[in-house]
Design a protein around this nucleic acid. Structure first.
Length: 203
DNA sequence: AAAACGGGGGC
DNA sequence: GCCCCAGTTTT
């Protein structure tokens, strides 16, 4: 299967792409940190509860981490995430004048921000051509035989070779939607998948 | 390279 | 009750 075939197929399946609550860089950064190792059904409501109280880097920076913890108790790793969100906000306020940085190098200096989170901010909020590789993207790319890789960093490099550049920023959202509904981590719904005729079903 | 962080949902 | 999950940091 060729990557551009898969991408156009996924675009037909999910015409609007992934529907983000908000593409503001700070909202994208905080919501993406909250989403780490945690399902959407939990993180989306929790992020909305959080921003209903603290809607700017300044308010978040001045917040008590324990008050933030109380708002996101159902999110995985909520204690460390609450502390990191306060620290991230302080750095953005003090070092970047309240504006989320727009380079990989600067984003990686923020606590709790790795390549996946940084690429979500760069791709979704700043519209840069990057591929955010999470477990969905890594699993689906290998399951479909698009790449043969052992880790997310390697997957990112290999996908950049086979995916048309104008689709890079959409790969994550499309594969997350596909991975949540059809090509799930365990017990994928192959019978209702429109790719079943050409899928090698690796994994 | 492996462990640790962690509550929620599927089975 | 057990296993896995929109990762990142630490050992």
């Amino acid at each position: 299967m060729f990557a551009d075939e898969l991408i156009s197929c996924l675009r037909e399946m999910y015409p609007g792409g992934y529907s983000h609550t908000c593409r503001d860089p700070f909202y994208m950064l905080v919501s993406t940190v909250l989403s780490q190792r945690t399902r959407d059904e939990v993180t989306i409501p929790a992020t909305k509860r959080l921003f209903a109280v603290y809607d700017t880097p300044r308010k978040m920076a001045e917040a008590d981490a324990e008050d933030i913890q109380a708002l996101i108790r159902d999110v995985g790793f909520y204690r460390v995430k609450a502390r990191r969100i306060v620290e991230i906000s302080r750095i953005i306020l003090q070092d970047y004048g309240g504006v989320v940085p727009n380079s990989m190098e600067e984003l990686l200096r923020l606590p709790g921000v790795g390549r996946k989170t940084a690429n979500c901010v760069l791709g979704y909020a700043y519209e840069q051509d990057v591929i955010a590789v999470d477990t969905h993207v890594h699993r689906i790319s290998n399951r479909l035989g698009l790449v043969k890789t052992s880790g997310p960093d390697e997957t990112e490099k290999e996908l950049e070779k086979v995916v048309p550049k104008d689709a890079w920023k959409d790969v994550n959202g499309l594969m997350v939607l596909f991975g949540q509904s059809i090509c799930r981590p365990t017990s994928p719904r192959c019978e209702e998948c429109r790719l079943k005729a050409i899928c090698p079903r690796i994994l």
